[in-house]
């Protein structure tokens, strides 16, 4: 696949207010095509809200989102055919088994039945979900839910993957599998955006990072430009301006 001129994902001036609290304020991000992009930030920084607005799951109060130059809110159908999404904590067709979910969504997308069957089989095998043939998604563990969500995002071979916290609650072995899948996806010309608050993870796999805090982007660019000779964790703490706690109090815990 050839890399595109336009960035894989570009958001400009995104803003979202819940009640009287601005969850996201003036967010600008640019994800170059072919990059592995990590969006990092503390809890409640606005990562999930930003990603939901970027892919068309949450209508922004202001700002634009474009996927390979296609406006998400104007040319919705075309934009959506280019991306695969794993939102955080959203529901699934809970009363289907993993195989049924993939079959259902593949057929709903109008993919050829043969292709759907083959990809479903492969995805279930690679993600080790094929042992739970009788289990409905509602009975899945948190980690299994992430994996079936990832399979859903990959099923139609999108050009951009937007994954919200893909490694949360995933066991170490599966995490390695997923990292490998995502690396191969990028090597094959795809682009990936993940959000996380685990710095070591982002540092290990991403080549671009965006740091978001308090609903604003405080730094963005190539990994080396953002962290400069420090670890990403140190850079992050400095950028976010937080102070690490846990030194005082709780003296009764030592027995």
């Amino acid at each position: 696949m050839t890399t595109h001129e336009a960035p894989a994902l570009r958001v400009t001036g995104l803003r979202k207010v819940f009640g009287d609290r601005a969850a996201v304020e003036q967010v600008h991000l640019s994800v170059p095509a072919g990059s592995f992009y990590g969006l990092v930030g503390p809890n409640g920084a606005g990562k999930t809200t930003t990603l939901a607005m970027a892919v068309g799951l949450l209508r922004p109060d202001a700002g634009r989102a474009q996927i390979f130059g296609v406006d998400v809110w104007k040319d919705t159908v075309r934009a959506k055919s280019l991306i695969g999404v794993l939102p955080d904590g959203h529901g699934m067709p809970e009363r289907l088994t993993g195989r049924e979910v993939l079959t259902y969504l593949g057929l709903l997308r109008g993919m050829a039945p043969q292709t759907v069957a083959e990809r479903t089989e492969e995805l279930l095998q690679v993600l080790e979900l094929d042992t739970a043939e009788r289990t409905l998604v509602i009975e899945y563990s948190t980690g299994m839910r992430k994996k079936i969500g990832l399979a859903v995002a990959l099923l139609h071979a999108p050009r951009l993957l937007v994954l919200d916290e893909p490694f949360e609650a995933i066991d170490p072995v599966s995490a390695v599998t997923i990292r490998t899948i995502l690396r191969r996806f990028v090597e094959g010309g795809g682009s990936v955006v993940i959000s996380s608050h685990v710095m070591a993870l982002v540092e290990g796999i991403c080549d671009h990072v965006g740091v978001i805090s308090g609903g604003r982007v405080v730094a963005e660019g190539r990994l080396d430009e953002v962290r400069r000779s420090r670890s990403l964790e140190d850079a992050f703490v400095e950028l976010v301006g937080a102070r690490a706690g846990g030194v005082e109090g709780l003296s009764w815990l030592s027995s």
């Binding site: 159908v77 959506k80 055919s81 959203h90 529901g91 969504l105 997308r109």
Partner: peptide, 18 residues
């Protein structure tokens, strides 16, 4: 009653009618 599972319909191009 299906809750947020609606996102899949929204992310599948043209799936609303179906």
């Amino acid at each position: 009653t299906d809750g947020t599972a609606l996102w899949l319909t929204l992310m599948t191009p043209g799936a609303e009618r179906h």
